[in-house]
Design a protein around this nucleic acid. Structure first.
Lengths: 125, 125, 125, 125
DNA sequence: GTGGTCTAGACCACA
DNA sequence: GTGGTCTAGACCACG
């Protein structure tokens, strides 16, 4: 799986990396139960600090997306992921902000679905 | 218009306030062309610092949502707001992240629209 | 002579008015030696504060563009205006800033002359 | 790069600093992609407040002249800068005011070009 | 009265 | 270490 981060972006590296890993899971590049690279090797591969990768793995563990095993982290092997309470709150907040913009600029449900579809098609890099 | 901020939220006060003002515009509590309270009075009202309000007004001016008149700020009197290039980029990023979550937790288009609708109904506090 | 000020602009009213009067002189709408309206009547006409007009007249007097007579202000009757030392400094600063932008965005002398010409053609409202 | 600000000028410190940085870019003292000093160190160097430098960097980022990287700001690495819509409007206004002065004092195109050239030669302090 | 600018000092997130 | 945010208080320009 190829991961590219933008050091220029406003978005913190760790958030970018979280999104990248989630993307990998969605596209199937990271299968259920598959092991992730070690903190050190991933950090070296993508050229960022070890602590940043560590933070990412821990946060994804908290979101129930990764599980810690004795030999490192693996993708949660449960076929269907459940949102944690915190994830749900964050998601609601995302929806809320989207709704604000939607109304402010008079966008329709169709506009939103269209954009979601476009985003999804651009998923596999 | 009632504005409530959460001082201990992760979200910066100024971002919260920006959302609140946008909400006011959507619900019609703030009409097109209507004057906003002065930075000082709003700051006093909601119990935050003048400079924080100032930052909010300036950013909303940047987003073309507020206009500066000689005696304070007013809601952009244009009936239909246009997204700036930057707004569009941010919106695309919002959509992208939503799409990631949508796929990760196997949500449907209908789920998303339903949540948007719910959020909208909860608009008027 | 028709004067229109934009209360929305970032530019202070008094600076706008100074430019408008200079424009009038250039286009010939205000002839050499011609009287200007009284502070009060001009203020009333264009809907601004008397003090603002007063400030404008005084500043233009200092720039040697207007002269004070017993019955009010008149356009300096000298056929050819001379820049005061301060005007020259301000003008040099204007030129300096223009030069900065010109170089920053790699504009040519021709671009500048072209834009000056265009501005001049738009002079007579 | 040597930067000198005039604390008692009419022009705000932050505008002066913006011009100085643009000057540095034009003269090549600041190369494309080069890092700028941190807000704190630059502020200390030139004897102004950190927040003032911060404002300058942010505004230059807005103008697409600086980019924010993870560890500070760098000069936009694009070889040719593009004016933003706002920059263009400001530039037009500059041209307009120059044209007014040009006509008021009966200056010729050659005078303007001559002054621009002189200003440019005085660029490297 | 309004917003704009500048200063100063604090705490936090990120890497 | 970096910039980001927030607070607090001061002075100024504008109208």
């Amino acid at each position: 799986m190829i991961i590219e981060l933008k050091p220029y972006s406003n978005k913190p590296l760790y958030e970018q990396l979280i999104l990248e890993i989630k993307r990998g899971i969605i596209t199937g590049e990271l299968q259920s139960g598959e092991s992730l690279p070690s903190v050190r090797s991933l950090a070296a591969d993508i050229g960022i600090n070890m602590h940043t990768v560590n933070k990412v793995y821990k946060q994804l563990q908290q979101e129930n997306i990764l599980c810690k095993e004795k030999n490192g982290f693996v993708v949660n092997p449960n076929s269907k992921l459940e949102q944690t309470a915190e994830s749900k709150d964050l998601f609601k907040q995302q929806i809320f902000e989207l709704m604000i913009e939607k109304n402010l600029y008079c966008l329709t449900d169709e506009d939103i679905l269209e954009m979601l579809k476009t985003a999804q098609e651009g998923l596999k890099k």
